[in-house]
Design a protein around this nucleic acid. Structure first.
Length: 572
DNA sequence: GCCGTTTTCGGCCCGACTGTTTTCAGTCG
């Protein structure tokens, strides 16, 4: 196994978890977490770092652990910890109310080593007798243990978006306040979301609380104070929704605080501390005078620290609090000039070519590509050569009927299980824009999958690889792609990689997008729309692009029609 | 464990909540 940076980061985080279980000094534990973070934020790859102690946050001890790991492909420190602490304890840290210290106590005093032994101890009533534990916490843990398998911890963004929209609609109709915002990981557009957070500015919290409690879809009320209303709604799955009610002048600070991420805020608080200040959800306090400053907008909060406005999607403590000292211009939805992957009634889409084109033009686009499925995909009514030639005639017709708008005649061509392509090169020449994608034999070995992708990458008439890993968030892992290799090869062959904006896919994910941009690969953000409402997924794609720090120039569908024609090799 | 124009010791991010307490530790975001 070649050890990469991710492995080292994981090692350090694992060591931290085990130390936590041992009940070690909490600062020693955070030291390992910080070292992992420092490594993550460092721009260099592993082999470019000769001395790890040069990175702030990594000292001699940690550097020695990393060196040992790199040299021997295993870590003596971790192995030792694994011998001292039963591995079955690690997942128990996810139980509510159970942290390192309490779990460590359960292990030492009751010989709890995994979920099964914990359950026994709970049922026999041993746990509630222990100091620091009680009847209530024992009941909670037992319930959590029993529910553990029934529901995933986080739900895919695609499932949560409609719920968030529904609640926002209710908030819009409310009378006791007018300023509110979604916060939390949903606002950061994380690909999975645990619960929904809303911040509400109200001068009459009691009335606002009552109004919130009138929401018709409430299944359970968890808390209903004048600063926090916490409910559970049933959207086919139970979801917690928190509303934080604050005074209007505190709104920006509260929004910033509850948008997070946690790690982003930790770093921001450290920055405040260096200025002898304290930042919280209520504002920024000067430690000497005790005066609390509040802000009109989040922009002003960041400016207070000498930073430019940091978009929510970027607030993950991936180095943004350093990078945004300089202005950083990330991709905006309004930069997008067209959508290069969508389907029509010719294959499995719901609307005609003309309808898709007109909808797209209404969105302000200058071009689209119609990219229906190819003949291999029979279930989707895939097109053969003849039908594609006929389709082009229709595209030509629509093109001549529309002003200031262009439709590229494209195809989403299958890469077949035997690594051949669904069309001969001779035919592909006729197409304006060729997408290659995998829709079959997902469980092949990495070698076979890579061979299929390489065939497509090397074909001079393939412009783009769509949804490169094939994952469906929360449902399907995707096929076994060596993404590093894919990115290198895409750079070599000048092939575009897709960011598929469908919230079920978001493929490539933001981490790979960072890598692809770093390597100089062109990206296209496409909705893969099968009906025109799906064209709206572009905003989700753009948000994901920002999570991957994509700049406008990396994304080719910000280019003009003319520039794209040149890129696609269309003479005109 | 890491760090240092208050540098080799003493601090390390903030506030709220919960349950178990009777003044607070542990957990969480």
């Amino acid at each position: 196994m070649t050890i990469n940076k991710k492995h080292v980061i994981k090692l350090l985080e694992e060591i931290a978890v085990y130390l936590e279980l041992k009940g070690e000094n909490p600062y020693r534990i955070t030291a390992y977490r910080r070292a992992a973070q420092a490594l993550e934020q460092d721009d260099h790859s592993l082999d470019e770092i000769d001395d790890f102690t040069k990175i702030k946050g990594i000292g001699e001890r940690t550097a020695a652990i990393i060196d040992d790991y790199l040299e021997n492909s295993e870590s003596e420190t971790l192995q030792q910890l694994q011998q001292e602490v039963p591995q079955g304890l690690v997942p128990l840290l996810d139980l509510p109310g159970l942290g390192g210290k309490k779990l460590s106590k359960l292990y030492q005093e009751l010989k709890v080593t995994d979920a099964a032994t914990l359950k026994e101890a709970l049922e026999s009533g041993e746990v509630e007798k222990l100091e620091g534990f009680g009847k209530k916490s024992a009941e909670k843990m037992l319930k959590a243990l029993e529910d553990a398998d029934s529901r995933p911890e986080r739900l895919p963004l695609a499932m949560m978006l409609p719920l968030a929209e529904k609640i926002e609609k209710y908030l819009q109709s409310c009378q006791t306040f007018d300023r509110y915002s979604i916060a939390g990981s949903m606002r950061r557009m994380k690909e999975t979301v645990k619960d929904l957070d809303f911040i509400i500015a109200s001068s009459d919290p009691a009335k606002t609380r009552d109004e919130l409690l009138e929401y018709s879809e409430i299944k359970d009320i968890v808390a209903s104070g004048e600063t926090k209303v916490s409910i559970v709604v049933d959207a086919g799955y139970e979801v917690g929704v928190d509303f934080r009610i604050v005074a209007p002048h505190e709104f920006a600070s509260t929004l910033q605080h509850f948008t997070g991420s946690k790690d982003h805020n930790v770093t921001l608080r450290q920055m405040a501390k260096e200025k002898n200040e304290k930042i919280s959800e209520y504002g920024i306090e000067n430690n000497e005078t005790g005066e609390v400053q509040t802000f009109e907008s989040e922009k002003e909060i960041y400016e207070h620290f000498g930073l430019h406005y940091i978009p929510p999607e970027v607030r993950e403590n991936y180095g943004e609090l350093d990078k945004f000292k300089e202005p950083v211009r990330l991709l905006e939805t309004s930069d997008i000039r067209g959508d290069l992957h969508m389907h029509s009634t010719w294959s499995d889409g719901a609307q005609s070519i003309k309808q898709m084109a007109e909808q797209s033009k209404d969105k302000g686009y200058q071009y689209i590509a119609i990219t229906d499925h190819s003949k291999y995909l029979r279930v989707a009514n895939g097109l053969n050569e003849n039908r594609l030639r006929k389709q082009r005639e229709e595209i030509d017709k629509v093109n001549s009927s529309m002003k200031d708008f262009h439709i590229f005649a494209g195809i989403e061509m299958d890469i077949l299980p035997d690594a051949s392509l669904d069309f001969e090169e001779e035919f592909l020449k006729e197409m304006d824009f060729v997408i290659a994608s995998i829709h079959s034999s997902f469980s092949q070995s990495q070698d076979k999958i890579m061979k299929r992708l390489e065939t497509a990458l090397e074909c001079p008439y393939v412009h783009m690889i769509a949804h490169p890993t094939g994952r469906l968030i929360g449902r399907r892992k995707g096929y076994d792609v060596d993404v590093n290799k894919l990115i290198t090869k895409a750079k070599e062959t000048g092939t575009i990689l897709e960011l598929n904006a469908n919230p079920n896919r978001l493929d490539l994910n933001y981490e790979w997008l960072m890598k692809a941009q770093e390597e100089g690969v062109d990206i296209a953000i496409n909705t893969d729309a099968h009906s025109y409402p799906m064209l709206d997924h572009m905003t989700i794609g753009a948000a994901t692009a920002r999570r991957g720090w994509l700049r406008k120039e990396t994304v080719i569908n910000t280019w003009t029609t003319k520039q794209l024609m040149k890129k696609f090799g269309i003479a005109k």
